[in-house]
């Protein structure tokens, strides 16, 4: 009985505030836009009994989804978000792996400090860390001042308000999410394996390729999901660092909802985004469960 209470409280909370909201999004994505409050029809009228439910069901259609396929803004935004998310996951991995590797090779007494230095930005406001790049990347910003000062360029580079700035922003803000799981995997690695490989005639590079890399796989997978999935729906970074040409679906959804007040279309955008992300989310959950089981 107590076990039932322990399970049901968090369970019901998540059902009510995580799962049910998605069903509502799904429902509204099938409704029609209307100039009313709330701005969609039909609304479910339970007081009318079965007739109300029937009327509501007959009013649902796939119109918003057809609209999404007809206007090329939407599918371009999905594709461009996908491209930005995939490329920035790769960049974050390329930047993050050497840091995690360096940390795992560092002397034992340095490690707590290095760990703290990685965690510190993670606790610092995301918004502020994105904002910090505005002053660096702008036309008269610090990066251009530096590059012109040492004479590498004569004209200031335009970086802010382009996709390049978005990539920099994503790599910068999501870096701890990549470094921490990889470091956790590398730290568990038994060093005698590497010594054995070297004794058996492997070069250090071959040993890295054959032992370190495969054994850090779980960390790389976890880190990549932690970067890729949220980056796909990112809103803050493209709106602060990206330009008018930066198309990302998170921004489109936000504007559809707040600027155009088109709730059914915003909901349809969210439903499709969720369908795209459901496979990576399930894979991420499996990977985490597997790691937790392994930790036992």
């Amino acid at each position: 009985m107590k076990r039932f209470g322990l399970i049901s409280v968090p369970y019901l909370w998540l059902l009510a505030l995580f799962l049910v909201p998605f069903l509502i999004v799904l429902k509204i994505s099938l409704s029609d836009t209307a100039l009313a409050i709330p701005p969609y029809t039909p609304t479910l009228d339970l007081s009318a009994g079965w007739a109300g439910v029937r009327e509501w069901l007959s009013g649902l259609d796939m119109e918003n989804f057809t609209w999404l396929t007809e206007d090329d803004l939407y599918w371009k935004a999905y594709l461009s978000s996908l491209k930005i998310a995939v490329l920035s996951t790769i960049f974050t991995l390329l930047v993050g792996f050497p840091i995690a590797y360096g940390m795992s090779r560092a002397p034992d007494e340095w490690r707590p400090t290095l760990m703290m230095l990685i965690i510190l930005p993670f606790w610092t406001s995301f918004l502020i860390r994105v904002y910090a790049w505005k002053a660096i990347l702008s036309q008269e910003g610090f990066l251009n001042q530096l590059l012109m000062g040492i004479g590498i360029i004569n004209e200031p580079l335009t970086i802010l308000n382009t996709n390049t700035a978005v990539y920099i922003g994503i790599v910068y803000t999501y870096l701890p999410f990549m470094v921490l799981p990889i470091y956790a995997a590398l730290e568990r690695l038994d060093e005698s394996l590497l010594e054995a490989a070297e004794d058996l005639g492997c070069s250090r590079l071959t040993a890295f390729w054959l032992i370190t890399l495969p054994l850090s796989k779980q960390g790389v997978i976890a880190g990549s999901f932690l970067v890729f999935i949220p980056a796909m729906g990112e809103f803050v970074i493209p709106s602060l660092l990206g330009g008018s040409k930066t198309l990302m679906i998170g921004k489109v959804l936000y504007e559809e909802f707040f600027a155009n007040r088109d709730w059914p279309v915003a909901s349809a955008v969210a439903v499709i985004l969720l369908l795209i992300l459901i496979i990576p989310i399930v894979l991420f959950q499996r990977n985490e469960e597997k790691q937790r089981e392994a930790g036992k």
Partner: peptide, 18 residues
């Protein structure tokens, strides 16, 4: 696990509609 990686725009929109 899903809320850890769920894009915030989706979570925000769905809660508002609720």
């Amino acid at each position: 696990y899903a809320p850890l990686v769920m894009p915030e725009v989706i979570t925000g929109l769905s809660l508002l509609l609720l």
